[in-house]
Design a protein around this nucleic acid. Structure first.
Lengths: 341, 341
DNA sequence: TTGAAAGCGCTAACAG
DNA sequence: CTGTTAGCGCTTTCAA
């Protein structure tokens, strides 16, 4: 079991050709006779030669690698997006480096510079912190696609987002159409641009239905510092205490399905019937909602479309660096109707 | 917006020192005066210089990067493991390249060679295909940690696994202790080493309780080609038709929580009460099971421990390449009792 | 059609 | 304490 992998030089030696010719054959570029091609390929086969892509990257000043920054890979929506992007890029012979930033500015910075130092050819940034700077990347020309979050410090980048506003608006409207008089939006105190949009949609739906929004009557805030998922009971208590403080509430639009699930559990504990006494609608349409009881109505993202737009644009940004400029894509969402409404 | 990042050579020029001295300062190794340190650092600061890690990797013949092969990143158990490994490695200044193999042998091969060509310093392979070869990696000395799956072609590697056997044994025993006379194991036709272990545990539990195992009475197989999650209704039908073919069944041990969830949905459709008429226990203890109705009893992995062992061993394999040899770690699991039993 | 040689950015041995 | 230089493995002019 010898460790030393053959280099292109070794192949040159073994085949009797120069490294230049070997390189040409490998990359199938430049001229060489069919005969040499065969000979060299045979040696490559026999030795199990593999291109060293680190050396290649250094020489070519590009790595055929895309970086992805994602706030939380164990979140279903993010995981799906990342997985599908990765799959598409794989088909195009790109490697993907997935970085889980855990919504930490610090990690985001470190990863960004790590990715840059690895000479990535492109970057996909998914949501996370509300305010997002491209930091050091600012003065490099790496193509960047931002999903759900617009960078504040960069003119040349592409922004793709679900229509959070419309989703929230429709969800709230649905509640009201179903007879809800006192809709409440349930949020976590963690800030993000998509949250802002959803809140705006909620408020506008109220306005359209002549309901005046007030924090006291229409906002249910869960303290995100008490991690909802890991300390479940605690989360339920937070919900019930917040819920009982509301004067009236017969419908909840939860900012995401995890929160909606929490509401379902909390209401069950309070012996409040869903959907008879309180209706609930979530956001993200994650699988968990399909198994709650009652099953959760939720706003569903068009993940396929988001991924398509992302990859298509990334490709054109990379291949025609000065063609595409600032662009924004808003992807429509739709309601997945189930039992909680 | 200029694209050209400063190289170490540029810093040398600007500071009046040689590249060697700049390199020494950057890496804080070798001798240099406090004065030069300050001067050089100032220039670095001002120019925003960043080490080019591609060049560094080539020179050092290592990349400070770890590869992770995972069969399905949108699976909760895998996602959690990957996320936590990534976090631990990040603290140790390692980058992580996460590769989603989608249980495809082809992708596994391509990724393996891609990772190798990127000069990764170590590799973590998580479950997936039943038979697993390290392919081309065989004759490189990259440290490999295998989670849940033992490579067949390599003597020097570390194997870490949940005690699938014990989990299945305990789960089945629990069913029987609760009065189940006709326990059934519910599987997908996708093969993996962990499945084999779980099946063995199930059978042994039957044996210990003097129940003779037969495929007809104790096995419920779901055809995995009809993707359970994406074609949900189809999945339920597959379940109900398979279930009704069983002569008797008053308890189901499902090989994973997704399957268990399918069973819950299917039994509901058949108007069979859980847990009164049929009890169910799952495997993986994923969050989805905490929201089914009734809530799912499940076998829970000790993810923290798996991750700890993985990272600790990886570190020692990398740092002391010829110290550690073959090792196996079996991590205990435990039962998370809920309402389906 | 092929080869020689330069150089991507970095580190480390050696020399001073 | 600092500089010169070779070389990691590769691609790509330029010359033959």
């Amino acid at each position: 079991m010898k460790d030393n992998k053959p280099s292109i030089k070794k192949i040159a030696e073994l085949s009797g050709y120069s490294v230049a010719t070997v390189s040409r054959v490998i990359n199938n570029n430049g001229r060489f006779s069919e005969d040499t091609r065969k000979k060299i390929l045979a040696i490559i086969e026999k030795t199990g030669y593999q291109t060293n892509s680190v050396a290649k990257s250094l020489r070519m000043q590009k790595s055929n690698t895309i970086g992805i920054l994602v706030p939380d890979i164990s979140n279903y929506f993010f995981a799906k997006i990342v997985q599908q992007i990765e799959e598409r890029l794989f088909e195009d012979d790109y490697s993907t480096i997935i970085c889980n930033t855990a919504r930490s500015l610090e990690k985001e910075k470190v990863y960004l510079s790590m990715l840059e130092s690895k000479m990535i050819d492109g970057l996909v940034v998914i949501s996370g912190l509300e305010k997002f700077n491209l930091h050091a990347l600012t003065n490099s020309n790496i193509p960047v696609i931002c999903i759900d979050r617009k960078p504040t410090d960069r003119n040349k980048s592409i922004f793709i987002s679900s229509n959070h506003y419309q989703g929230a608006f429709d969800a709230t409207n649905l509640l009201i159409k179903k007879g809800i008089k006192h809709p409440v939006i349930m949020v976590q105190d963690r800030n993000s641009s998509s949250l802002q949009e959803r809140l705006r949609g909620f408020k506008d739906a109220l306005k359209e239905n002549n309901i005046t929004y007030s924090k006291e009557d229409n906002l249910l805030m869960i303290d995100s510092k008490s991690n909802v998922l890991s300390q479940k009971t605690n989360g339920i208590e937070l919900f019930t205490s917040a819920f009982t403080k509301l004067r009236t509430c017969d419908g909840i639009f939860a900012i995401n399905d995890d929160l909606a699930t929490l509401a379902i559990d909390g209401l069950e504990k309070l012996d409040i019937d869903i959907p008879d006494q309180v209706k609930i609608i979530g956001f993200d349409n994650s699988p968990i909602g399909q198994h709650t009881s009652p099953k959760l109505t939720s706003v569903s993202h068009n993940i396929d479309e988001i991924v398509s737009i992302t990859c298509d644009n990334l490709r054109s940004l990379i291949q025609e660096p000065n063609k595409v400029l600032d662009k924004e894509y808003i992807v429509e969402v739709n309601l997945a109707l189930r039992e909680t409404t």
